[in-house]
Protein backbone atom coordinates (compact mmCIF):
# COMPACT_ATOMS: atom_id res chain seq x y z
CA UNK A 1 0.00 0.00 0.00
CA UNK A 2 2.73 2.43 0.99
CA UNK A 3 4.76 1.49 -2.07
CA UNK A 4 1.70 2.06 -4.26
CA UNK A 5 1.07 5.51 -2.82
CA UNK A 6 4.71 6.47 -3.22
CA UNK A 7 4.87 5.31 -6.83
CA UNK A 8 1.74 7.33 -7.61
CA UNK A 9 3.18 10.39 -5.92
CA UNK A 10 6.35 10.01 -7.98
CA UNK A 11 4.24 9.88 -11.12
CA UNK A 12 2.41 13.05 -10.12
CA UNK A 13 5.62 15.00 -9.66
CA UNK A 14 6.55 15.42 -13.36
CA UNK A 15 3.09 16.87 -14.06
CA UNK A 16 3.55 19.53 -11.42
CA UNK A 17 7.11 20.18 -12.58
CA UNK A 18 6.02 20.71 -16.19
CA UNK A 19 3.24 23.05 -15.12
CA UNK A 20 5.58 24.97 -12.83
CA UNK A 21 8.03 25.35 -15.73
CA UNK A 22 5.28 26.65 -18.02
CA UNK A 23 4.11 29.14 -15.40
CA UNK A 24 7.69 30.21 -14.76
CA UNK A 25 8.34 30.63 -18.48
CA UNK A 26 5.21 32.76 -18.72
CA UNK A 27 6.45 34.93 -15.89
CA UNK A 28 9.96 35.27 -17.21
CA UNK A 29 9.72 35.44 -20.97
CA UNK A 30 6.35 37.05 -21.61
CA UNK A 31 6.38 40.79 -21.25
CA UNK A 32 9.07 42.80 -19.53
CA UNK A 33 8.44 43.29 -15.80
CA UNK A 34 11.37 45.68 -15.54
CA UNK A 35 10.00 48.01 -18.21
CA UNK A 36 6.58 47.79 -16.60
CA UNK A 37 7.87 48.73 -13.15
CA UNK A 38 10.33 51.50 -14.07
CA UNK A 39 9.24 55.08 -14.54
CA UNK A 40 9.82 56.95 -17.82
CA UNK A 41 12.94 58.88 -16.71
CA UNK A 42 14.77 55.96 -15.03
CA UNK A 43 18.50 55.78 -15.69
CA UNK A 44 20.41 52.76 -16.82
CA UNK A 45 21.74 52.40 -13.25
CA UNK A 46 18.18 52.26 -11.89
CA UNK A 47 17.49 49.55 -14.36
CA UNK A 48 20.54 47.53 -13.28
CA UNK A 49 19.52 47.97 -9.65
CA UNK A 50 15.98 46.74 -10.25
CA UNK A 51 17.21 43.76 -12.23
CA UNK A 52 19.48 42.82 -9.33
CA UNK A 53 16.70 43.43 -6.83
CA UNK A 54 14.29 41.16 -8.72
CA UNK A 55 17.04 38.55 -9.07
CA UNK A 56 16.79 38.66 -12.88
CA UNK A 57 20.59 38.67 -13.25
CA UNK A 58 20.84 35.16 -11.88
CA UNK A 59 20.78 31.98 -14.01
CA UNK A 60 17.32 30.71 -14.88
CA UNK A 61 17.46 27.65 -12.65
CA UNK A 62 18.13 29.83 -9.61
CA UNK A 63 15.21 32.01 -10.59
CA UNK A 64 13.06 28.93 -11.12
CA UNK A 65 13.97 27.60 -7.68
CA UNK A 66 12.95 30.92 -6.13
CA UNK A 67 9.71 30.90 -8.14
CA UNK A 68 8.83 27.46 -6.83
CA UNK A 69 9.72 28.52 -3.28
CA UNK A 70 7.46 31.55 -3.54
CA UNK A 71 4.69 29.54 -5.13
CA UNK A 72 4.80 27.01 -2.29
CA UNK A 73 4.19 29.88 0.10
CA UNK A 74 1.28 31.11 -2.03
CA UNK A 75 3.24 34.15 -3.19
CA UNK A 76 2.63 35.12 -6.82
CA UNK A 77 3.21 38.85 -6.79
CA UNK A 78 0.77 41.54 -7.87
CA UNK A 79 -1.90 41.26 -10.54
CA UNK A 80 -0.99 43.52 -13.47
CA UNK A 81 -4.65 44.31 -14.05
CA UNK A 82 -5.90 44.95 -10.52
CA UNK A 83 -2.63 45.81 -8.70
CA UNK A 84 -3.54 43.56 -5.79
CA UNK A 85 -1.76 40.45 -4.46
CA UNK A 86 -2.75 37.45 -6.56
CA UNK A 87 -3.06 35.21 -3.50
CA UNK A 88 -5.67 37.53 -1.97
CA UNK A 89 -7.62 37.71 -5.24
CA UNK A 90 -7.75 33.95 -5.53
CA UNK A 91 -8.63 33.37 -1.87
CA UNK A 92 -11.49 35.82 -2.30
CA UNK A 93 -12.85 34.08 -5.40
CA UNK A 94 -12.27 30.45 -4.43
CA UNK A 95 -15.37 29.91 -2.24
CA UNK A 96 -17.72 30.91 -5.08
CA UNK A 97 -16.15 28.41 -7.50
CA UNK A 98 -15.92 25.62 -4.92
CA UNK A 99 -19.57 25.96 -3.87
CA UNK A 100 -20.69 25.96 -7.49
CA UNK A 101 -18.50 22.97 -8.39
CA UNK A 102 -19.59 21.02 -5.33
CA UNK A 103 -23.30 21.53 -6.03
CA UNK A 104 -22.86 20.59 -9.69
CA UNK A 105 -20.88 17.47 -8.76
CA UNK A 106 -23.47 16.42 -6.19
CA UNK A 107 -26.22 16.88 -8.78
CA UNK A 108 -24.28 14.90 -11.39
CA UNK A 109 -23.74 11.90 -9.13
CA UNK A 110 -27.15 11.90 -7.40
CA UNK A 111 -29.06 12.06 -10.69
CA UNK A 112 -26.64 10.57 -13.22
CA UNK A 113 -25.81 7.29 -11.46
CA UNK A 114 -29.45 6.28 -10.71
CA UNK A 115 -30.45 7.19 -14.28
CA UNK A 116 -27.60 5.06 -15.62
CA UNK A 117 -28.62 2.10 -13.45
CA UNK A 118 -32.23 2.46 -14.53
CA UNK A 119 -31.48 2.65 -18.25
CA UNK A 120 -29.05 -0.26 -17.88
CA UNK A 121 -31.54 -2.57 -16.15
CA UNK A 122 -34.59 -1.62 -18.22
CA UNK A 123 -32.69 -1.20 -21.47
CA UNK A 124 -35.68 -1.85 -23.71
CA UNK A 125 -38.30 0.31 -22.00
CA UNK A 126 -39.40 3.45 -23.82
CA UNK A 127 -38.41 5.59 -20.84
CA UNK A 128 -34.81 4.46 -21.30
CA UNK A 129 -34.93 5.18 -25.01
CA UNK A 130 -36.24 8.69 -24.42
CA UNK A 131 -33.62 9.29 -21.70
CA UNK A 132 -30.83 8.11 -24.01
CA UNK A 133 -31.93 10.34 -26.85
CA UNK A 134 -32.17 13.30 -24.48
CA UNK A 135 -28.70 12.48 -23.14
CA UNK A 136 -27.25 12.61 -26.64
CA UNK A 137 -28.71 16.10 -27.04
CA UNK A 138 -27.12 16.94 -23.68
CA UNK A 139 -23.70 15.85 -24.91
CA UNK A 140 -24.06 17.99 -28.04
CA UNK A 141 -25.32 21.07 -26.24
CA UNK A 142 -22.47 23.52 -25.63
CA UNK A 143 -22.50 24.62 -22.03
CA UNK A 144 -22.86 28.31 -22.85
CA UNK A 145 -25.84 27.71 -25.13
CA UNK A 146 -27.55 25.80 -22.33
CA UNK A 147 -26.83 28.57 -19.84
CA UNK A 148 -28.16 31.13 -22.27
CA UNK A 149 -31.38 29.18 -22.85
CA UNK A 150 -31.92 28.77 -19.10
CA UNK A 151 -31.44 32.51 -18.62
CA UNK A 152 -33.83 33.22 -21.47
CA UNK A 153 -36.56 31.00 -20.02
CA UNK A 154 -36.20 31.29 -16.24
CA UNK A 155 -34.78 34.79 -15.86
CA UNK A 156 -36.07 36.80 -18.82
CA UNK A 157 -39.42 35.18 -19.68
CA UNK A 158 -40.56 33.81 -16.31
CA UNK A 159 -38.54 36.07 -14.03
CA UNK A 160 -38.24 33.34 -11.37
CA UNK A 161 -34.48 33.25 -10.92
CA UNK A 162 -31.68 35.82 -11.17
CA UNK A 163 -29.58 35.74 -14.35
CA UNK A 164 -26.24 36.84 -12.91
CA UNK A 165 -24.19 37.17 -9.72
CA UNK A 166 -24.20 35.21 -6.49
CA UNK A 167 -26.97 36.86 -4.49
CA UNK A 168 -26.37 37.72 -0.82
CA UNK A 169 -23.45 35.98 0.86
CA UNK A 170 -22.61 35.32 4.49
CA UNK A 171 -19.02 35.68 5.74
CA UNK A 172 -17.71 32.79 7.80
CA UNK A 173 -14.12 33.72 8.58
CA UNK A 174 -12.48 34.24 5.16
CA UNK A 175 -15.06 32.03 3.46
CA UNK A 176 -18.04 33.77 1.89
CA UNK A 177 -20.97 31.41 1.50
CA UNK A 178 -24.01 31.83 -0.69
CA UNK A 179 -25.58 28.61 0.57
CA UNK A 180 -27.10 30.18 3.67
CA UNK A 181 -29.29 32.87 2.12
CA UNK A 182 -32.40 32.52 -0.03
CA UNK A 183 -31.12 34.81 -2.76
CA UNK A 184 -27.76 32.99 -2.73
CA UNK A 185 -29.46 29.62 -3.21
CA UNK A 186 -31.72 31.01 -5.94
CA UNK A 187 -28.70 32.42 -7.76
CA UNK A 188 -26.97 29.04 -7.52
CA UNK A 189 -29.72 27.00 -9.23
CA UNK A 190 -29.21 27.99 -12.88
CA UNK A 191 -25.37 27.91 -12.90
CA UNK A 192 -25.32 24.56 -11.09
CA UNK A 193 -27.78 23.02 -13.57
CA UNK A 194 -25.81 24.42 -16.50
CA UNK A 195 -22.60 22.96 -15.18
CA UNK A 196 -24.11 19.60 -14.23
CA UNK A 197 -26.06 18.69 -17.39
CA UNK A 198 -23.12 17.81 -19.64
CA UNK A 199 -21.36 15.70 -16.98
CA UNK A 200 -24.67 14.15 -15.97
CA UNK A 201 -25.37 12.87 -19.46
CA UNK A 202 -21.86 11.46 -19.71
CA UNK A 203 -22.10 9.59 -16.44
CA UNK A 204 -25.56 8.25 -17.27
CA UNK A 205 -24.28 6.79 -20.53
CA UNK A 206 -21.20 5.37 -18.86
CA UNK A 207 -23.03 3.69 -15.97
CA UNK A 208 -25.53 2.27 -18.46
CA UNK A 209 -22.80 0.83 -20.68
CA UNK A 210 -21.01 -0.73 -17.69
CA UNK A 211 -24.27 -2.12 -16.32
CA UNK A 212 -25.08 -3.74 -19.70
CA UNK A 213 -21.60 -5.21 -19.89
CA UNK A 214 -21.76 -6.71 -16.40
CA UNK A 215 -25.30 -8.03 -16.78
CA UNK A 216 -24.08 -10.13 -19.75
CA UNK A 217 -21.41 -11.95 -17.72
CA UNK A 218 -21.59 -15.53 -16.57
CA UNK A 219 -21.67 -14.90 -12.86
CA UNK A 220 -24.88 -12.89 -13.29
CA UNK A 221 -26.43 -15.75 -15.26
CA UNK A 222 -25.36 -18.08 -12.48
CA UNK A 223 -26.90 -15.79 -9.87
CA UNK A 224 -30.15 -15.88 -11.82
CA UNK A 225 -29.96 -19.66 -12.01
CA UNK A 226 -29.56 -19.75 -8.25
CA UNK A 227 -32.93 -18.02 -8.09
CA UNK A 228 -31.79 -14.81 -6.47
CA UNK A 229 -34.18 -11.88 -6.61
CA UNK A 230 -33.70 -9.26 -9.31
CA UNK A 231 -32.93 -6.73 -6.66
CA UNK A 232 -30.14 -8.78 -5.15
CA UNK A 233 -28.65 -9.42 -8.59
CA UNK A 234 -28.86 -5.85 -9.86
CA UNK A 235 -27.70 -4.06 -6.75
CA UNK A 236 -25.77 -6.68 -4.82
CA UNK A 237 -23.85 -8.28 -7.67
CA UNK A 238 -23.94 -6.11 -10.78
CA UNK A 239 -23.72 -2.58 -9.41
CA UNK A 240 -20.62 -3.26 -7.32
CA UNK A 241 -18.64 -4.31 -10.37
CA UNK A 242 -19.69 -1.36 -12.47
CA UNK A 243 -18.27 1.03 -9.90
CA UNK A 244 -14.56 0.76 -10.75
CA UNK A 245 -14.72 2.57 -14.12
CA UNK A 246 -17.38 4.88 -12.74
CA UNK A 247 -14.97 6.09 -10.05
CA UNK A 248 -12.36 7.00 -12.69
CA UNK A 249 -14.84 8.89 -14.78
CA UNK A 250 -16.35 10.60 -11.74
CA UNK A 251 -12.85 11.81 -10.87
CA UNK A 252 -12.27 13.04 -14.41
CA UNK A 253 -15.65 14.72 -14.27
CA UNK A 254 -14.77 16.62 -11.15
CA UNK A 255 -11.88 17.97 -13.23
CA UNK A 256 -14.27 18.69 -16.09
CA UNK A 257 -16.58 20.54 -13.74
CA UNK A 258 -13.74 22.73 -12.53
CA UNK A 259 -12.62 23.43 -16.13
CA UNK A 260 -16.10 24.19 -17.42
CA UNK A 261 -16.85 26.31 -14.37
CA UNK A 262 -14.85 28.91 -16.32
CA UNK A 263 -17.56 28.98 -18.98
CA UNK A 264 -20.50 28.83 -16.58
CA UNK A 265 -19.04 31.59 -14.44
CA UNK A 266 -18.65 33.77 -17.53
CA UNK A 267 -22.23 33.18 -18.68
CA UNK A 268 -23.68 33.97 -15.24
CA UNK A 269 -21.03 36.50 -14.24
CA UNK A 270 -20.41 34.33 -11.19
CA UNK A 271 -17.62 35.93 -9.14
CA UNK A 272 -15.39 32.84 -9.02
CA UNK A 273 -11.85 31.89 -10.00
CA UNK A 274 -12.80 30.90 -13.55
CA UNK A 275 -14.29 34.30 -14.31
CA UNK A 276 -11.15 35.87 -12.84
CA UNK A 277 -9.02 33.65 -15.08
CA UNK A 278 -10.89 34.55 -18.26
CA UNK A 279 -10.60 38.24 -17.48
CA UNK A 280 -6.87 37.71 -16.91
CA UNK A 281 -6.43 35.90 -20.25
CA UNK A 282 -8.18 38.78 -22.01
CA UNK A 283 -5.89 41.32 -20.31
CA UNK A 284 -2.70 39.16 -20.49
CA UNK A 285 -2.49 39.42 -16.68
CA UNK A 286 0.30 36.89 -16.29
CA UNK A 287 0.68 36.57 -12.50
CA UNK A 288 -2.98 35.63 -12.16
CA UNK A 289 -2.78 33.23 -15.11
CA UNK A 290 0.31 31.53 -13.71
CA UNK A 291 -1.16 31.21 -10.22
CA UNK A 292 -4.44 29.82 -11.51
CA UNK A 293 -2.55 27.39 -13.73
CA UNK A 294 -0.49 26.06 -10.81
CA UNK A 295 -3.44 25.89 -8.44
CA UNK A 296 -5.69 24.07 -10.87
CA UNK A 297 -2.98 21.55 -11.79
CA UNK A 298 -2.50 20.83 -8.12
CA UNK A 299 -6.24 20.19 -7.88
CA UNK A 300 -6.11 17.86 -10.89
CA UNK A 301 -3.11 15.97 -9.57
CA UNK A 302 -4.82 15.50 -6.22
CA UNK A 303 -8.00 14.31 -7.93
CA UNK A 304 -6.09 11.78 -10.03
CA UNK A 305 -4.22 10.59 -6.98
CA UNK A 306 -7.48 10.21 -5.07
CA UNK A 307 -8.98 8.22 -7.94
CA UNK A 308 -5.99 5.87 -8.02
CA UNK A 309 -6.18 5.30 -4.29
CA UNK A 310 -9.94 4.66 -4.44
CA UNK A 311 -9.29 2.17 -7.20
CA UNK A 312 -6.89 0.39 -4.95
CA UNK A 313 -9.44 0.22 -2.17
CA UNK A 314 -12.34 -0.82 -4.41
CA UNK A 315 -10.66 -3.42 -6.60
CA UNK A 316 -9.23 -6.34 -4.60
CA UNK A 317 -7.37 -7.63 -7.68
CA UNK A 318 -5.01 -4.66 -7.56
CA UNK A 319 -4.17 -5.42 -3.95
CA UNK A 320 -3.63 -9.11 -4.64
CA UNK A 321 -1.03 -8.38 -7.32
CA UNK A 322 1.38 -6.94 -4.85
Amino acid sequence: MVAFVISRLLQALPVLLVVALVSFALFTFVGDPVAAMLSQDATLADRENLIRLLGLDQPWYVQFWKFVGNALQGEFGLSYRLSRPVSALIAERAPATLELAFCAAAMTLCIGVPLGIFTGIYKDSWVSRVLLTVSLVGVSLPIFVLGMLLILVFAVQLGWLPSFGRGDTVQIGWWSSGLLTVSGLKALILPAITLAVFQLTLITRLVRAEMLEVLRTDYIKFARARGLSNRAINFGHALKNTLVPVITIAGLQLGGIIAFAIVTETVFQWPGMGFLFIQSVGAADIPVMAAYLLLISLVFVVINLGVDLLYYLVDPRLRAQR
Binding site: P14, L26, V30, G255, G256, F260, M289
Partner: peptide
Protein backbone atom coordinates in the same frame (compact mmCIF):
# COMPACT_ATOMS: atom_id res chain seq x y z
CA UNK B 1 0.76 14.36 -18.30
CA UNK B 2 -1.61 16.01 -20.72
CA UNK B 3 -4.49 13.68 -19.88
CA UNK B 4 -4.33 14.93 -16.30
CA UNK B 5 -6.13 17.98 -17.65
CA UNK B 6 -9.49 18.16 -19.43
CA UNK B 7 -9.06 18.83 -23.18
CA UNK B 8 -11.01 22.06 -23.00
CA UNK B 9 -8.68 23.46 -20.36
CA UNK B 10 -5.61 22.53 -22.43
CA UNK B 11 -7.04 24.34 -25.45
CA UNK B 12 -7.88 27.37 -23.34
CA UNK B 13 -4.41 27.45 -21.78
CA UNK B 14 -2.55 27.03 -25.08
CA UNK B 15 -4.68 29.76 -26.60
CA UNK B 16 -4.21 32.02 -23.58
CA UNK B 17 -0.44 31.51 -23.51
CA UNK B 18 -0.16 32.21 -27.26
CA UNK B 19 -2.22 35.34 -26.75
CA UNK B 20 0.08 36.54 -23.99
Amino acid sequence: VQLTFPAFLVALLVDGIARA
